[in-house]
Design a protein around this nucleic acid. Structure first.
Length: 283
DNA sequence: ATGGGGGCCTGCCGGC
DNA sequence: TGCCGGCAGGCCCCCA
């Protein structure tokens, strides 16, 4: 599910309830998600203050007062929602527990944060904050697309010589971190590049343009509060709006939105994933 | 080294 | 109404 814009939207939604707040109680309802939880996870979280709530790629990172960092990944179907009232003014009740509520944080400020993940492709882990970058899930990630290190040159360099289709290359988190199936399709549409084109076959000028377009798509999506497909909700339970702005994703058979283009959006399968694109204006 | 495919899970949707 | 196949936003791992 959640790609970078959705994860960023969740992080922002969690900030008022989590950052600077103390985890009064951590309830862990099963031993694992995609992988086993770290040893004594509940005990290592209980009583800790969340110093900072960060994001790296599609991972949420909560730096704790203990010197450890909690890593959270939402997988395909993970959600984090806030209930209750961080200000302690209205004394809202918490909603009843749902199926697949795997981890629940009761914050000392009265907020409850619930991690729900039907498919359990998500993950949680704990590591030393000082060594967070070396975590196996983070160590090989490429640059943040909205950060300073991601520029035209670096994308062109990363794509050079690669025979894989540009679609697959952009899904490779070592080239650029945080893109998933939706935003790769959308970025390639905006850049007018066919998902089937060999990555190493793009001119440096087009690769440079693509880098700019990737940033633009992600910024637009974050601004819209992410996309709401199936089970994505913002942390406050509200729906995002970016799905209404998809130009190609899930628009098979519909007309291309490029001005003057009479093409139709097609769906193809590349390395097992759907790609949506206009065969007429994406080359 | 690089690229492709399988597998992990549950839920939903469309077709019969 | 019910069953079944196909599909889904991610990513590790194995194989060629």
């Amino acid at each position: 599910m959640p790609e970078l814009p959705e994860v960023e939207t969740v992080r922002r939604g969690l900030l008022p309830a989590m950052e600077g707040a103390v985890i009064a109680r951590a309830q862990v309802n099963r031993p694992d998600l995609r992988w086993p939880f770290p040893e004594n996870m509940a005990a290592r979280l209980t009583g800790q203050r969340v110093i900072a709530l960060r994001r790296r790629s599609k991972y949420i990172l909560a730096d704790l007062s203990s010197g450890e960092t909690l890593l959270i990944h939402l997988g395909m179907s993970g959600r984090m929602t806030v209930s209750g009232d961080p200000l302690g003014v209205f004394h809202h009740d918490h909603p009843a527990a749902q199926k697949h509520d795997h981890v629940v944080f009761d914050m000392a400020n009265g907020a409850r944060i619930t991690f729900n993940d039907p498919r359990r492709f998500g993950a949680m882990d704990l590591m030393e904050t000082a060594r967070a970058d070396a975590h196996p899930l983070l160590a090989k990630l490429g640059p943040e697309p909205l950060g300073n290190r991601f520029d035209e040159t670096c994308l062109a360099d990363a794509l050079a010589g690669r025979k894989t289709p540009i679609k697959s290359a952009l899904l490779d988190q070592r080239i650029v971190a945080g893109l998933g199936n939706i935003y790769v399709c959308e970025a390639l549409f905006r850049a007018r590049i066919s998902p089937r084109r060999r990555a190493g076959n793009l001119s440096r000028a087009r690769a440079a343009g693509l880098a700019g377009v990737i940033r633009e798509v992600l910024r637009d999506a974050i601004e819209a509060g992410g996309s709401s497909l199936r089970d994505f909700r913002q942390a406050d339970g509200e729906l995002g709006y970016f799905q209404h702005r998809f130009d190609v994703y899930d628009r098979e058979g519909q007309p291309c939105r490029t001005a003057g283009c009479t093409g139709t959006i097609r769906r193809i399968v590349q390395s097992g994933r759907s790609s949506f694109y206009c065969t007429s204006c994406q080359r």
